[in-house]
Simulated scan of single mutants.
Amino acid sequence: MNAATVDDLLTRELRDDRIGLVDATGREYDYHWLCTTAWKAGNFLRHAGVRNGVTVGVVGDGPLALLAFFGTTLLEGTTRFEPPTDLTDEDDFRTLVAAVDELEGYELPRGAQRVGYGDEPDAPGVHHFDAGLWSENPSFPPLSIDPETIILTDGDRTVTHEGVLEAAREVVTETDLEADDRVVVRAPLSDPRTVAAGVIAPLLARGVIVLPDNADESGDERGTYAVSSASVESVPEPNRIDLDAVSLP
Rank of each mutant, 00 (worst) to 15 (best):
A68Q: 06
F69M: 11
F69H: 07
T72Q: 04
T72I: 03
T73W: 11
T73V: 09
L74P: 08
L74G: 05
E76K: 12
E76F: 03
G77C: 10
E82D: 15
P83Q: 12
P83M: 15
P84G: 14
T85D: 12
T85R: 15
L87F: 08
T88W: 06
T88A: 14
R94P: 07
T95Q: 05
D101M: 01
R110M: 12
R110E: 14
G111M: 05
A112D: 01
R114G: 00
R114H: 04
V115W: 08
G116S: 00
G116W: 00
G116I: 01
D119G: 02
E120F: 03
P121C: 00
D122Q: 08
D122N: 05
A123N: 06
A123H: 06
A123T: 12
P124K: 07
D130C: 07
A131I: 01
G132P: 11
W134Y: 08
N137S: 03
N137D: 11
P138L: 01
F140P: 04
P141W: 03
P141L: 01
P142I: 10
L143W: 07
S144R: 13
S144G: 13
I145N: 04
I145Y: 02
D146A: 03
P147E: 03
D154S: 13
T158D: 15
T158K: 11
H161D: 13
L165N: 14
A167C: 05
A168P: 02
R169E: 15
V171Y: 15
V171E: 09
T173E: 15
T175S: 09
D176V: 00
L177P: 10
E178M: 15
V183A: 00
